[in-house]
Design a protein around this nucleic acid. Structure first.
Length: 411
RNA sequence: CGGGCUGUAGUGUAAUGGUAGCACGAGUCGUUUGGGACGAUUUAGUUCGAGUUCGAAUCUCGGCAGCCCGACCA
């Protein structure tokens, strides 16, 4: 991508109404734009991050047998009445069609859609287990959207739903999903600071599980077990003052941001939709369900909260918008920069090329720090036949040959 | 939803109730080129409505919007 063609621009000043670091940096760098409270446009750079996170999640969901679908955002009132959630879910976006006077819901979650959907196809024990997932914008009518991407009214989420012949089968799958989630958080670069967290469980199991990323600016309070790598949410710590995993009493309070949440739904949703299957003897049995969510846009915000410095964002390589930020610092190096840009592209290395000739070196370097692409590559009069490379996360600057650059990039 | 704060060019900020100014950005011309460079020049604004007043960005009331604290958060 030629930076001279990018329609967004960076800003030296933070938007005055924002306090959250993720909102400030993502806005300044041109990754997102706020349309209204809790509702954001993802601009070219930001959308690339969203796509990369989504792809990692997609791969791991596929790996545990998830089948991707895209369900409607618009739901009829009837389905929400059937589960008794039309009135009980307070953040439900409800509205009435101006013309047809139909009552509608903008989906905040999809149990009301996925359950009757799978009911049409799953008839026998031979059809089980199954899991479907989607990556889609969700709507929650939050009374207080806040903290940039952390709590939006429209946000991107991956939600998966699994269907099982028995509680035991659900339990088994649930453990597989946990491993998939760990892999996801590792792959997006949050492995070290993200912990499995015991949270309140609802009707069918003692606990649900959250994935909490420990960051100073998180809005949740969790208690970290000092022995095993898990935490307990504040909401259950009153009745659970010991680690539910190892019994340790040494729990340390920390701030964290929830990035994922998995639940054993049991038969809570299959019952109201009368979703059952025939077992080997031909008698009807309950379907057991699980659900597994990851807030993708929030995850992007959390990564910014976790990885930044006073100059800007520091993207993990796995989800960075580009791998290399190539900068041409002066007129005399334009030709060799253009050639390197072509060569990098030919080798499928994703590169943002700052080819702007009307900007000063200082401005280009400041922009590179703000945008936070993992490798900064500079060509100038000074670099001669070599290439200057610097990692955003480190301060060392190295002069290397073109060959070494390709090796470094895994080519 | 309860409480608090705030709305001024594209952005960030000034202006005792008395001429709306500055910086950045953007446009033009020229000089520059390793950490947001310099000169000249141009551009553009008081959230909306009502009230008080000779006169309102400023005071009062209301709307709308944003942020923060709390509540809420399958």
């Amino acid at each position: 991508m030629l930076q001279s063609q990018l329609f967004t621009r960076t800003s030296k000043t933070a938007p005055k109404e924002e306090e959250a670091i993720n909102a400030i940096l993502l806005t300044r760098a041109g990754f997102v734009d706020k349309l209204m409270s809790g509702v954001y446009t993802f601009l070219p750079l930001g959308l690339r991050v969203i796509h990369r996170i989504s792809q990692i999640i997609r791969e791991e969901m596929n790996a545990v047998g998830g089948q991707e679908v895209s369900m409607p955002v618009l739901h009829p009132k009837k389905n929400w009445e059937q589960t008794d959630r039309w009135n009980s879910v307070d953040i439900l976006f409800k509205f009435t069609s101006y013309y047809t006077k139909t009552d509608l819901v903008l989906g905040p979650t999809h149990e009301e859609v996925v359950t009757p959907l799978l009911k049409k196809f799953i008839l026998s024990y031979k059809d089980l287990p199954r899991a479907v997932f989607q990556i889609q914008n969700k709507f929650r009518d939050e009374l207080r959207a806040k903290s940039g991407l952390m709590r939006g009214r429209e946000f991107l989420m991956k939600d998966m739903y699994s269907f099982h012949a028995s509680e035991a089968d659900l339990d088994e799958y649930y453990e597989k999903a946990k491993i998939a989630y760990e892999t996801i958080f590792k792959r997006v670069g949050l492995g070290k600071q993200t912990v499995l967290t015991y949270a309140s469980g609802g009707t069918f199991s003692k606990y649900s599980h959250e994935y909490q990323t420990i960051v100073e600016t998180g809005e949740d309070n969790v208690f970290l077990c000092q022995k095993c790598n898990i935490a307990v949410n504040k909401e259950i710590i009153a009745d659970q003052s010991t680690c539910p995993q190892c019994g340790n009493k040494d729990l340390k309070p920390v701030k964290a941001a929830e990035v994922g949440n998995i639940f054993k739904l049991g038969t809570k949703f299959s019952k109201p939709f009368e979703f059952q299957y025939k077992d080997q003897s031909g008698s009807l049995q309950d379907i057991w369900m699980g659900c597994y969510g990851i807030g993708i846009s929030r995850l992007m915000g959390v990564v910014v909260e976790a990885f930044h410095d006073d100059k800007g964002m520091i993207w993990p390589e796995s989800i960075a918008p580009y791998q290399i930020h190539l900068i041409c610092l002066d007129d005399t190096s334009k030709t060799k920069s253009d050639i390197l840009y072509q060569e990098l592209q030919k080798n499928q290395i994703e590169v943002l090329y700052d080819d702007r000739m009307d900007k000063t070196p200082g401005e280009k370097l400041a922009d590179a720090d703000l945008i936070g692409i993992p490798y900064r590559v500079i060509l100038s009069e000074r670099t001669g036949d070599n290439i200057e490379i610097k990692k955003r996360s480190e301060s060392d600057i190295k002069l290397i040959s073109k060959k070494e650059l390709f090796v470094q990039m895994g080519k």
